Simulated assay, not measured.
Amino acid sequence: MKTFSPSSSRASSTGADGLSPNDHRANRIFRHMSPEEISALGPSIEHLTYGKGEMILQRRDEEGGIYLLLEGVLLANQYARSGREVGYRRIAAGSYFGEISAIDGLPRSVNVVALEDARIARLPQSLVRRLFEESPRFMKALLEDMAGLARALTDRLFELTAVSVACRVDIELLRMAGVAGGDGQRAVISPCPTHAELAALLGSQREPVTRELNRLAGLGIVRQTGRTLHVLDLPALAGEVERIGGEI
């Protein structure tokens, strides 16, 4: 890990608010705050970079703070004593993590590792505590996202206990396609998780994940080129979820 100056970041296209997607001020955690409120936080925010494979947070770490992902893709996971990996979620640019420990003051509950080179802005715990006390708009975004996380975990628990691995693969591809964006017919997922990474996220083994991806490719629904997965027919993928027993 190394620190960097915000002015050294790569240039990129700007959104409707005039901010580039990899600017910390564009992170979703600030979505209800005014530009003036967000700008005032700048001197207190730490900017960090991590290389692919580097551990950002480790389970049971006691350091607080909330981390905003500016660039890259991360994985929240945990390892059983047997060595088996359990993946909880992929974290995409524009998201944030670490809020649970920042709220309850307890050690980190999962590891967070960089799946590719990543840039991060960190809100130190002292700043987070001040925002908890002084910014209802910050708290509104945090509470909305905590509710969304609870709903997502409920959905995943249902999927793990009630639907097949093949169906879970299809549902996860739909989720990732939604994050990637597109025209409602096609989407490009890049970088796509490896089959082993998908298996860890879905509570499965690599072999059934590979079989389902090969089946979808045979139907012309997906095509993979290296670490890029092209979803060629989103409606057909959604139809497969419903056909084999899942819910959209």
Rank of each mutant, 00 (worst) to 15 (best):
A118G: 07
K52S: 15
G220R: 05
R206Q: 14
G72K: 02
L219I: 02
E133I: 03
S9M: 15
S7P: 01
S12D: 06
L75G: 01
D183H: 03
R59E: 14
L237Y: 04
G42Q: 12
V86Q: 13
T3A: 12
L69I: 03
R10Y: 01
R175L: 10
R215S: 09
L229H: 01
R130Y: 12
D23M: 02
E247H: 12
P235E: 04
R243V: 02
N77W: 08
P21K: 03
S34M: 08
Q125F: 12
P191M: 00
V73Q: 12
V73H: 01
L142Y: 09
E134N: 13
S82Y: 12
S82M: 11
C192L: 05
A114D: 04
L202E: 00
A199E: 00
V231C: 07
R215G: 01
T225R: 13
R215A: 14
R10G: 05
P136R: 05
L127M: 11
M139W: 00
G87P: 07
V169P: 10
K2G: 11
G184H: 09
E207G: 13
G246Q: 08
L131Y: 07
A187Q: 04
Q224Y: 05
K140R: 14
R122V: 15
S9C: 12
E62L: 07
L173H: 04
C167A: 15
L123C: 11
L174W: 00
A102C: 10
Y50G: 08
H24N: 03
A147M: 09
C192Y: 07
V179P: 06
K140I: 00
Y88R: 02
V179T: 08
G226S: 10
D155S: 14
P35A: 11
L149Y: 13
I91Q: 05
E240D: 12
V112N: 01
M176S: 03
S12K: 11
A11I: 08
I56A: 04
G246P: 06
E99C: 07
A147E: 13
R151C: 08
S7G: 08
H47E: 07
L237K: 09
Y96H: 13
F158V: 11
R151K: 13
S95F: 11
S126C: 06
R90H: 04
L74Q: 06
Y79A: 14
L75K: 08
E36L: 14
P107C: 08
Q58S: 15
G65I: 04
Q78D: 14
